[in-house]
Design a protein around this nucleic acid. Structure first.
Lengths: 220, 220
DNA sequence: CGTATAGTTGACCTAATTCAAAAGACGTGG
DNA sequence: CCACGTCTTTTGAATTAGGTCAACTATACG
């Protein structure tokens, strides 16, 4: 994740910072891609809205995440701020121009997008192979891992249940029931809307995916 | 897809060709990445085997597809030939060296992997948002589209039902039932194991995904 | 403290899985 | 070219996980 900085810092000094309030749209799928973004504070949800109105969230951009890196002329996802959010904006043309000249930089883009493919594949696995409780357990563990390598037993959930549901391909009621099951099994504790305490990390990991392939959904 | 050639032809002349028989392994997830491949003939399935033995297929590499482009030191997926298959092998180091020197080439890699992200996202949408019949309809249309832009009403299915099931996140029985439904609705005709005739393209498209976003699962 | 919004819980329903068995396809050797 | 055996695919019946609809509760915010 500090890699994000490495990448974008090379586009200095054309960088400006923008602020967004809770649920403010950053961009929409299909918009002309003017900027790539680095999340400085807050969270961004990345999603597609389907023709029938359903929504699929592909990931959450936390601090240090870069957004909008794919090589497309328009954004391939929509992005919405979750909570008060601050984003560094890098002009996409600057990024492209640099990449066209500097092979090392272009390779970094290539690597960054490769990581994105991997993350998306992990999501595919979650969606098609895990049951609802496993999905939620997995999700919580991913959030926990993000903080301090592995532990961090107190997890902040900036996103609401609907965001989680749309990410994990389930309904909010099912998310709720899954959390309830985890509570009942004494693996976690739910502290208000947006905090969760992990009470039995090992147990949660066991439940999450049989073997704990060390990566999992890393679509941060 | 001719883009594949554009990319790999630049790695000339270190290219050799290998032949594989039906179901022969090309490489396994985790193997050291020595080659990237261009499919010259036949088909390759790209998949992960999960700890519990389940399998998720991420796509099928048909003629002209490139395989193993992601920037990883080991293969992130396993690959298996479907039918007699011929692959052009490009040394991965050659590819990397070229990319390190040639920004334009590195950008091509970046673009190729970006397309892969998009394809994988389409798979996510299929898996989490579509019912079984829609999934199969969608799959058939993708295969059909691949041939001559849009039409090609006679589809060859080199892969078996299990491959399809593992791709679409369902059981083979469900694939079978979905096909049966499509037959009953007079949208397709099943001709033996590995051929399907589309009888009502428009109807199939209607069923496949409400709006026909022109791309869909393009994980060829 | 009261209201609006978000989350939870319960009862019922549906789509897909599971298990089991039948039918069909395909290659082989007669 | 047909008969056989194997493997793949299809079909059927029972089960189940998750979705749906509706009521209820908790939380946050003014």
């Amino acid at each position: 994740m500090p890699k994000a900085n490495v990448i974008l810092s090379q586009c200095w000094p054309d960088v400006i910072t923008k602020r967004y309030h809770d649920r403010q749209q950053v961009f929409l799928e299909g918009d002309e891609k003017r900027w790539a973004y680095l999340v400085e504070a807050g969270t961004v949800s990345l999603y597609k809205t389907l023709p029938d109105g359903k929504r699929q969230v592909f990931g959450f951009g936390f601090r240090h995440a870069i957004i909008g890196l794919e090589a497309t002329e328009t954004y391939s996802l929509s992005a919405q701020a979750i909570g008060i959010t601050r984003l560094k904006c890098v002009p996409y043309t600057a990024l492209c121009q640099l990449a066209a000249k500097d092979a090392a930089f272009a390779l970094q883009l290539y690597e960054a997008v490769s990581a994105e493919v991997e993350a998306t594949r992990d999501l595919v696995v979650i969606l098609s192979q895990h049951g609802s409780t496993e999905r939620v357990a997995n999700f919580l563990l991913t959030l926990a891992r993000r903080k301090f390598g592995s532990s961090a037993h107190l997890i902040a959930l900036p996103m609401n249940r609907l965001d989680i549901a749309d990410f994990l391909g389930m309904k909010i009621e099912t998310v709720s029931r899954a959390l309830a099951k985890l509570v009942q099994s004494e693996l976690i504790e739910v502290l208000g809307r947006s905090k969760i305490q992990i009470k039995d990390m090992a147990g949660l990991q066991r439940l999450a995916g049989l073997a704990n392939h060390v990566r999992e959904v890393s679509n941060l």
